[in-house]
Simulated scan of single mutants.
Amino acid sequence: MQVDLKLDEEQRQIVAMVRELAQERIAPFAAEWDEREEFPWPVVEAYREAGLFALAFPETYGGVGASAVTQVLVVEELAKVDATAAIILAVQWLGALPILVAGSEAQKARYLPKLASGEWLAAMALTEPEAGSDVAGLQARAVRVDGGYRLTGQKKFISHGAIADVLTTFARTGGPGAKGLSAFIVEKGAPGVRVGRIERKLGLRASNTAEILFDDCFVPERHRIGEEGEGFSIAMRTLDRSRPAVAAQALGIAEGAFAAALQYAQERRAFGQEIARFQAIQFMLADMAMGIEAARGLVYRAAHLVEEEGRGGGRLTTANRYSAMAKCFASDVAMQVTIDAVQILGGYGYIRDFPVERFMRDAKITQIYEGTNQIQRIIIARSYLDLAPGP
């Protein structure tokens, strides 16, 4: 199946608006936010003003109802200047997806309008110290009590965990394995919820990544998403749809690094000429460009398939395969392109006066979060071997 990569007029206008916003309100400050490890609240305000949070939400709940392709175009454009700024949108949409795919009408009416406007921020609390890729091995437990559940456990590496107003949280309500998991909505300030360690990271240093501790936290039954035992399915349906955004983030990082390396190669002189005239540099630039273009095709195709198959909130089939491919391939490309960009800049690439070292640090996480690339390869292989997608 071929995907027409031509943008319609609305998409061109959105991309142009986002590019201008990124250049004026993000690019000049990205290095400072990274250096200070300071969450960029001005970016959140800029997104609220521009209505960018609304893109992924249905019009019924105050959103724009933009296609999955439009969403990845926006994330890609933002990541060209700052991966942290890009992930603010991606995490908002990730945190809302469990409600979108499996929430009740009452839950959607309460939460989605505030998330679409950006008034509230969302996060998804899935990973635990001993259960990241192994979602079926989650140990946080929700014990049924009168009127709801008592939630106890520890979540780790939660993007925006300390600043989110809404946490879509996964915990064990039954026995071991995937069938024992359920999904819940936990609001900020609920008794028994505490923010633990704020992680100090190699990359995405301005992004808030937190440990969340639940200590006998009461969750009303009306805040359970779907039925008991559906948590694993909800998590997988969410990740099927969210991975193209991570792939788009990786693609944008690679494009930003390539642009910086290309400009430098044409300005830096050695041995009496621009270093871009040397075949060794040309080969590196060519490989970088080929990887980026190949990744772009996979990212857009995955987003298109998510759009086509994603209606109704069920588990995806072909789109699941291509979401895994796009995330895996684009993040591997981003890592290689940023390493090569640092190499082309030489000593200057290794210092913070130039953005490529930040791009390289930021690229690494795209190979790890929302399913490591080793897990993506398992998903891809199983999709061809007709093996079960999970435990």
Rank of each mutant, 00 (worst) to 15 (best):
P58F: 00
E38I: 11
A56N: 09
A50Y: 02
K80T: 11
W93A: 14
Y61W: 11
R36Y: 10
V69C: 10
G63K: 02
L89D: 08
A54V: 04
A66R: 14
L89H: 09
T84V: 15
G63R: 01
V75Q: 01
A86E: 11
G51I: 02
R36I: 12
G63M: 04
E59S: 11
G65T: 09
E77M: 07
V91L: 04
R48P: 00
W93R: 12
E45Y: 09
V75W: 01
A86K: 01
A79I: 03
I88W: 04
Y61S: 06
A50R: 13
E37K: 15
A54K: 07
D82C: 09
L89I: 10
A54N: 05
V43Y: 01
A85N: 13
A46F: 03
E59L: 06
A68S: 15
E38L: 14
E45T: 12
I87L: 13
G65M: 06
P58A: 00
F39A: 05
A68N: 15
V69R: 15
A66T: 10
F53H: 11
A79S: 12
V72Q: 09
Q92H: 12
A54E: 04
E45C: 06
A56S: 13
E45F: 11
Y61Q: 02
P42Y: 10
L89K: 08
Y61H: 08
A83I: 03
E59T: 12
I87F: 08
A50M: 09
E59K: 13
I87Y: 08
F53C: 09
F57D: 04
F57K: 05
E77Y: 06
L55T: 08
Y61D: 08
